[in-house]
Design a protein around this nucleic acid. Structure first.
Lengths: 138, 138
DNA sequence: AATTTTATAAGAATGATTCCGATTTAATAT
DNA sequence: ATATTAAATCGGAATCATTCTTATAAAATT
């Protein structure tokens, strides 16, 4: 997934092109890590004075619905990142400080699937937490 | 972990015995599933008119600090359950409807540990979601 | 350029959680 | 048993993330 593909997808689905959407996507592309709504606002508020949380949240949610962004919930906040270009299902190692990630290739559900009698499994979450190189120093 | 052991632990640590704490613990024992603060309030409000969220949250947090309750975050809410009596590290299959759980014995970090150059791993989360027998019917 | 539809701003509303000051209660000392 | 002290609780205000509402603005279409 990249910015152009994402904008194309928006168009296909009948959504409008706006500079704010473009810039939000570019931000996620540049940062390639998990960001919270307030991070996005912080990054764009200089360019767009009066930019509202509503706009941020509405677009984050839209992008997420269209598969442009991946989402997780961490420390009581929803966090978003550009969907990884690798197509196959995978998980992340996540820096608790800055949100930077590394891929985890092996999915535990492939390695040893979890199931239980009478229990209908619908999903799973596997995340490993820690601190990346840079964040360990501060 | 059980109610008596938990009350003992409270005593050891210099916390006071109160009926509300006792009843909260008994509730978790009886239910043996993940409950949110509001579930606890709901269950106890008849017996204790005017029971406040502050009391619930303060005690949930205390119990959690003392290792009496396990905690997870699900659908934007903190959820708590009595710490499983099995001592060893394990994970859960969780019913998204009622919070009931099953054990997952194999920890993915044992089966195939995740690590990365320069990344200091501090923790992980593995949860499998679905619907239990009873909740599938409704 | 006019019309239609979607996007946005600004702020109010919501829901979960935490904080605060005053009061009550459990444990301890008398 | 009573007085003292420290912790627990109440009730409501404050906070934080998120969603909703209504009026306005901007993009796409005619």
């Amino acid at each position: 997934m990249n910015v152009d593909k994402a904008m194309e997808k928006l168009k296909e689905e009948g959504y409008k092109y706006t500079d704010k959407r473009m810039d939000m996507l570019q931000l996620f592309k540049d940062e390639s890590r998990y960001l919270a709504a307030k991070d996005v606002l912080e990054a764009l508020k200089d360019k767009y004075k009066g930019l509202s949380f509503d706009t941020i949240y509405r677009n984050l949610s839209l992008f997420s619905d269209l598969g442009i962004l991946e989402t997780t919930e961490l420390a009581g906040e929803k966090k978003f990142r550009f969907t990884c270009s690798t197509d196959h299902h995978h998980h992340h190692l996540i820096c608790l400080e800055c949100g930077k990630t590394r891929h985890i290739e092996k999915c535990p559900m492939d390695v040893s699937p979890v199931s239980a009698e009478g229990f209908a499994v619908t999903g799973h979450k596997f995340e490993v937490y820690g601190y990346c190189n840079e964040c360990q120093e501060s």
